[in-house]
């Protein structure tokens, strides 16, 4: 196998890694920002919930390639505009997150919500300061799934010539350089693992209360 390809193309790999990372992570951030208000809406009424959860769930079933090919038509963008990929992955992130955040918000104990109301929180402030923080652990779990999913979905963009490490697959295949394909796979995998671990650590750091209580036992 032509392992010599790797040292000769380190610069390219690094460049594509950076591109791949933001193509995967920007949609994660946008998806989170869109999902939180949608999930809030979903917890308002049972109707809103079933509509939103079903609709976003359906989005996830749209094949990724179809979405990436269709979006330029729908959005009026150039087929090679990376924005297409960002929009597509944002849609997938929303599809994954709305349901888990809505579930997490529903799981906030009603006594806690009642107590916060009784103390004089306005509904908006209560959502920001009480309900959303308590939904963090489940939200982070959803984000981890979405992050890993995005990392691998970015590579689909390579088929229509968009950037990211997927280009190593198409190029390696066309020019018959297995080392290039393997490099792509390994780097995507490592990136996914790193982002997953980062989310895990950050999630823990911002929810110190979730790791207490065992010492005191179950007291009611």
């Amino acid at each position: 196998m032509n392992w010599g390809w790797i040292p000769r193309n380190l610069g390219l790999v690094a460049e594509l890694t950076v591109e791949h990372s933001w193509l995967a992570l920007l949609p994660l951030l946008l998806g989170l920002l869109i999902s939180v208000p949608l999930a809030w809406l979903a917890t308002r009424t049972p109707l809103a919930r079933s509509v939103l959860v079903t609709a976003t769930g359906l989005l996830y079933t749209v094949p990724s390639l179809a979405l990436i090919v269709m979006l330029p038509l729908l959005l009026g963008l150039q087929i090679l505009d990376p924005l297409n990929l960002v929009v597509a992955l944002t849609i997938y992130t929303v599809a994954l997150l709305v349901r888990s955040i809505a579930d997490a918000l529903d799981a906030v104990p009603s006594v806690v919500v009642a107590a916060a109301t009784a103390m004089g929180y306005t509904p908006l402030r209560r959502f920001v300061a009480v309900e959303m923080p308590l939904a963090i652990p489940v939200t982070v779990a959803g984000l981890r799934v979405a992050a890993v999913s995005n990392m691998s979905l970015v590579t689909v963009g390579a088929i229509v010539g968009l950037g990211g490490l997927g280009l190593l697959f198409t190029d390696g295949f066309q020019r018959d350089i297995p080392a290039e394909i393997i490099t792509g796979i390994v780097v995507v995998l490592v990136l996914a693992l790193i982002v997953d671990a980062l989310l895990l650590v950050v999630g823990r750091l911002i929810t110190p209360w979730a790791r207490t209580g065992q010492a005191a036992g179950r007291q009611r």
Partner: peptide
């Protein structure tokens, strides 16, 4: 049930 805020 005291209804304390678990995250504070």
């Amino acid at each position: 049930q005291a209804g304390l805020l678990p995250h504070r």
